[in-house]
């Protein structure tokens, strides 16, 4: 991954609830606590830009990926931001959008 791509694809370190929803996150050195019920949603993937095979019957996971939209407050300064996070296996979750 190039430096540019790394910047574009920002990630957050995410701590989840036992059910898997984000509860706290660390982004750009700032700590955030989720303050409203997170909303699960599904985002689409531009699968045709990949070089994946898409044979009938086995491409269910190619088109979409699970996302969370969370409202979180910065622990240090109280700023409230909305994050779109792509649910991931590890603790590093890609951030696809941030709104204030």
């Amino acid at each position: 991954m190039t430096a540019d791509a790394a910047v574009q694809q920002e990630t957050a370190t995410v701590w989840t609830t036992p059910q898997g929803a984000p509860a706290r996150l660390l982004w750009a050195g700032r700590r955030f606590t989720v303050i409203a019920k997170p909303i699960a949603w599904m985002d689409r993937i531009s699968w045709w830009e990949s070089s994946l095979r898409v044979p009938a019957g086995s491409a269910a996971a190619v088109v979409e990926r699970p996302m969370w939209q969370v409202q979180a407050r910065a622990v240090e300064d109280g700023e409230i931001l909305i994050f779109d996070l792509a649910a991931s296996d590890g603790a590093q979750w890609p951030i696809t959008a941030i709104y204030d």
Binding site: M42, S46, A56, A59, V63
Partner: peptide, 25 residues
């Protein structure tokens, strides 16, 4: 949903990526 994406492209007569695709599957 992959098939539906291709059908949408045929319906728009445009390649995938050149029009607003379905939001998810």
């Amino acid at each position: 949903a992959v098939t539906a994406d291709v059908l949408d492209a045929a319906a728009h007569l445009l390649p995938l990526g050149d029009f607003q695709p379905q939001p998810n599957a």
